[in-house]
Deep mutational scan, measured.
Amino acid sequence: PVYLSVKADNSMFIGNDPVTDETMITALNALTEGKKDTTIFFRADKTVDYETLMKVMDTLHQAGYLKIGLVG
Rank of each mutant, 00 (worst) to 15 (best):
E33A: 10
F42S: 00
G72F: 04
T59G: 06
T32P: 01
G15C: 07
E33C: 09
G69T: 15
L4I: 15
T32A: 03
A27E: 06
I14A: 03
T52H: 08
I25Q: 02
K36A: 06
E22F: 07
K35W: 06
E33H: 13
Y65L: 01
K55S: 07
L28N: 00
I68V: 14
T38I: 13
L70P: 05
Y3F: 11
G72P: 12
T32H: 03
A8G: 13
V48M: 05
K67Q: 12
F41N: 07
V6C: 03
K7A: 10
T39V: 12
T23E: 08
V48I: 09
T38C: 07
Y65W: 05
E51S: 12
V48Y: 03
F13C: 08
A8C: 07
T47H: 13
S11E: 08
P18A: 10
G34M: 06
T59Q: 13
D17Y: 14
T23M: 07
V71G: 09
V56T: 05
R43A: 14
G72R: 08
V6K: 01
M54K: 14
E22P: 03
I14E: 00
V19E: 01
N16R: 08
D49H: 13
D45H: 09
K46P: 15
H61W: 09
L28K: 01
D49W: 05
P1N: 09
K35V: 08
I14H: 01
N10P: 01
G15M: 10
T26D: 14
D45K: 02
Y50I: 12
K7V: 08
K36Y: 08
N16M: 10
T26P: 11
D9E: 04
F41D: 03
Y50H: 12
T38M: 10
P1V: 15
E22V: 10
T32Y: 04
L28A: 01
P18D: 03
L53H: 03
E33D: 14
V6T: 01
L4F: 09
L31E: 03
A44Y: 13
T32R: 02
Y3N: 05
T32L: 09
G34R: 04
M12P: 01
V2T: 03
T39L: 14
I14N: 01
D37L: 05
T20G: 05
E33F: 12
Y65V: 01
T26N: 10
Y65H: 01
R43D: 10
T52G: 04
T23G: 08
F13T: 08
D37W: 04
T47M: 12
N29F: 08
K55F: 08
P1S: 09
D45W: 05
L28Q: 00
I25V: 11
G34P: 02
T59V: 14
A8N: 08
L4K: 00
I68R: 01
K46Q: 13
S11C: 08
G34F: 06
V71E: 11
A30W: 07
T23A: 05
T23N: 14
K36S: 05
S5E: 12
L66H: 13
E22T: 10
K46F: 09
V56R: 04
V56H: 05
K67D: 10
V2W: 04
T38L: 08
A63V: 04
L53D: 00
A63Q: 04
N16W: 07
L53K: 07
M24V: 09
A44F: 10
L4P: 01
A44K: 04
D9T: 06
I14M: 05
Y65R: 00
I14L: 14
L53I: 15
K55I: 06
L66D: 09
L53T: 06
K67V: 13
L70C: 10
A27I: 15
G72Y: 03
P1Y: 15
D17R: 11
T20H: 03
T23C: 06
V71F: 08
L70S: 08
F13Y: 13
L31K: 08
P1L: 10
V48D: 03
I25C: 03
N16G: 11
M24N: 00
L4Y: 02
R43N: 12
L70G: 04
H61S: 10
I40C: 01
R43S: 14
F13K: 06
T23D: 11
P1W: 11
K35S: 08
L66S: 09
M57A: 05
N10T: 07
M54L: 14
N29K: 06
F41G: 02
D9A: 07
T52E: 05
D58A: 11
H61G: 06
D37V: 03
T32D: 02
S5G: 04
K36E: 04
A44N: 04
G69W: 13
Y50V: 12
F41H: 11
D17S: 12
K36N: 05
H61I: 13
T26W: 09
T47R: 11
G72E: 14
Y3C: 09
A30N: 11
D45V: 03
T47Q: 15
I68C: 04
V48S: 05
H61E: 06
L70Y: 10
P18F: 09
A30I: 14
F42W: 02
D49A: 15
G34A: 05
F42M: 15
E22C: 04
E51M: 12
I68G: 03
N16T: 09
V2C: 03
M54A: 11
V2I: 14
A8T: 09
F42T: 03
E33Y: 07
T32C: 06
L60S: 00
D37C: 06
K36M: 07
T23Q: 09
A27P: 00
Y65S: 01
T38G: 04
T23K: 04
A8R: 06
D49E: 13
L66K: 09
L28D: 00
Y3M: 08
F13W: 15
Y3D: 03
P18H: 08
K35T: 05
M12Q: 02
A8F: 08
E51Y: 11
T39H: 11
Q62S: 12
G34T: 05
A44D: 02
L28I: 14
D21R: 15
I25T: 04
D17E: 12
T23H: 07
L70R: 03
T20R: 05
D9C: 05
L53P: 01
Y3G: 02
S11P: 01
G15Q: 08
T39P: 14
M12I: 13
A8I: 05
D49Y: 05
